[in-house]
Design a binder for these strands. Structure first.
Length: 270
DNA sequence: CCCATGTCCTGGTCGC
DNA sequence: TGCGACCAGGACATGG
């Protein structure tokens, strides 16, 4: 569920409740996430949240003496709740705040992460090799073209590589390539600068549109099954293999690339 | 049994 | 041959 738009929506949603609050308690119910939750998360107690930022799909809560890094993995969700809300299955971590609310992480598959870094988080290896934010000015015309020179990896795999650009997951990679009329299997190094620049615009548009609708996801989030469907209606190719292309009625095809499914229109994406 | 929105790590390949 | 960049696939855990 968490692609970049949802993480950004999550950030915007939790920020007003968390900003400037002091941590009163840190509860670790299950430390076994992607990496063990370190004991040092207790260092947050009695310190104030100074900012709520995002880099790639990482949420960053900054304190005067360090940074809490949160990643939702494949199945994580974060909610701001009353601190006394009964614990549910897979509620692994709470950050209890002085306003009697808590930031609660639920993550069935436990691919997420909760990490504490004293001082400068940006120097850590996790963030140091990441490509530009797709919605920033650093992701500009010419960037993808230069980065793709001499690369033989298929464009779909290229776009999903965090060292190239962050936040483009499987769903949005499929969608952006359809909108750009580029077949996912096309070798990156063979794509023209013009087409790459067009793709740059489309990636920004698709992600921005998804963030805009993300509010709905957050609002519906407390519902029983919590499964967001907000983007499902918007998807043009993802999950639609075997169905008709909305543009030309051809039957959409599916291939597997790097162990992930790619869906494309054989007519519109030559 | 199949599949699944992420991403780190390993080991192999390629090209200079 | 060496080295570094690049790349495919495995691994993680749970649920539908």
């Amino acid at each position: 569920m968490p692609e970049l738009p949802e993480v950004e929506v999550c950030r915007q949603g939790i920020k007003p409740h968390v900003m400037d609050q002091t941590v009163s308690k840190v509860i670790v119910r299950n430390a076994k996430l992607r990496w063990p939750i370190p004991e040092t998360v207790q260092h947050m107690v009695d310190h104030r949240v100074e900012s709520v930022d995002r880099r790639s799909k990482y949420l960053m809560l900054k304190f005067d003496h360090g940074t809490l890094l949160l990643h939702l993995g494949m199945s994580g969700t974060i909610r701001v709740i009353d601190a006394k809300t009964p614990v549910a299955k897979h509620d692994h971590f709470d950050l209890v705040l002085s306003n009697n609310k808590a930031l609660r992480l639920n993550d069935p598959r436990r691919f997420g992460a909760v990490l504490w870094f004293a001082n400068h988080v940006d120097e850590q290896g996790l963030l140091s090799k990441l490509g530009p934010e797709p919605l920033s000015e650093n992701f500009s015309y010419g960037y993808l073209y230069e980065k793709a020179k001499n690369r033989k990896v298929p464009i779909k795999t290229f776009l999903m590589n965090n060292h190239v650009v962050v936040g483009v997951g499987n769903i949005y990679a499929n969608e952006a390539l359809f909108k750009a009329g580029v077949r996912p299997t096309t070798l990156s190094g063979k794509i023209s600068k013009k087409k790459f620049d067009q793709l740059t615009d489309i990636i920004k548009e698709v992600l921005a549109a998804a963030i805009k609708q993300g509010g709905t996801t957050l609002k519906d989030f407390t519902q029983a099954d919590g499964r967001p469907g907000y983007f499902a209606q918007q998807l043009l190719v993802y999950g639609r293999a075997g169905e008709e292309c909305f543009n030309c009625k051809s039957i959409l095809e599916e291939v597997r690339q790097s162990n992930r499914s790619s869906v494309f229109c054989p007519t519109c994406q030559q």
